[in-house]
Nucleic acid binder design. Structure first.
Lengths: 121, 121
DNA sequence: AAGACAGTCAACCATATGGTTGAATGACTG
DNA sequence: CAGTCATTCAACCATATGGTTGACTGTCTT
């Protein structure tokens, strides 16, 4: 369903790999925020915050609506769902119930499993 | 409840933000692999692969067992579960069923005002 | 029109990242 | 013991990243 391509996951996970950006997402979970509002909790310059926001936007994690001189940002759940879905592939490894049995089956099966990566270089 | 150990998430998501490393994880989902085996599918030096593996190990995503001169790597699901769990916080945003209603409730709840007049460009 | 305000852009800087090559460490093999 | 094999380490390089400051664009206010 949510088959995504490698470069997208790259930018998504990269964007999530920064606590400032994760914090911003968390704020956005509560509703729309302007760039200034997103920047405010951090002791970094507006320009720096702007870059973070751009990274989030670039990863598709947020969307921006320009209202006059203010930019309103909102959470865009799609990429989060993609990442969640990608991780879901590994769920059986921490859902220990059938883990061992399942691995045995996999080894026997041995064939190509669905690569969550979608395509590959 | 949802806010997790920030530095750990940093390294986890950072490790996942590289397709080479994701591919390695995928291989490891099929069973243990040596460093050489993990490196083989890529056209990079062993040293480079070693660095990737170190990043994965550093994020706790894999564990290494040294058997003589070979290092056997295995998937460590915990951090993947953490990341999955972290993303789960946002699940309601892509589980659209109640999404709109929920957002309305949230807005009322927090009195955020932010009434978007004409909300669209 | 003047000025404040929201935000981006550009230049710059330090550090991190991903890659390379060549040497070093350690463990099997003959 | 000598040599090969599996891996890491160290030095190095180019590029990316995250941060800063100052100038710039464009919008709202008065």
């Amino acid at each position: 369903m949510v088959e995504l391509q490698t470069p997208q996951l790259d930018s998504i996970f990269h964007a999530l790999g920064d606590s400032t950006r994760r914090r911003m997402l968390f704020e956005l979970a509560d509703g729309e925020r302007t760039v200034g509002q997103l920047a405010e909790p951090f002791s970094i310059s507006l320009a720096a915050a702007s870059k973070h926001i751009k990274a989030l936007e670039n990863a598709g994690l947020i969307r921006r609506e320009i209202h006059g001189r203010t930019h309103l940002c909102r959470l865009e759940p799609g990429p989060l769902a993609s990442a969640h879905n990608w991780l879901g592939f590994y769920e059986r490894f921490w859902t220990e119930r059938l883990g061992v049995l399942e691995q045995l089956l996999r080894m026997e099966d041995s064939g190509k499993t669905t690569d969550p990566e979608g395509d590959d270089s």
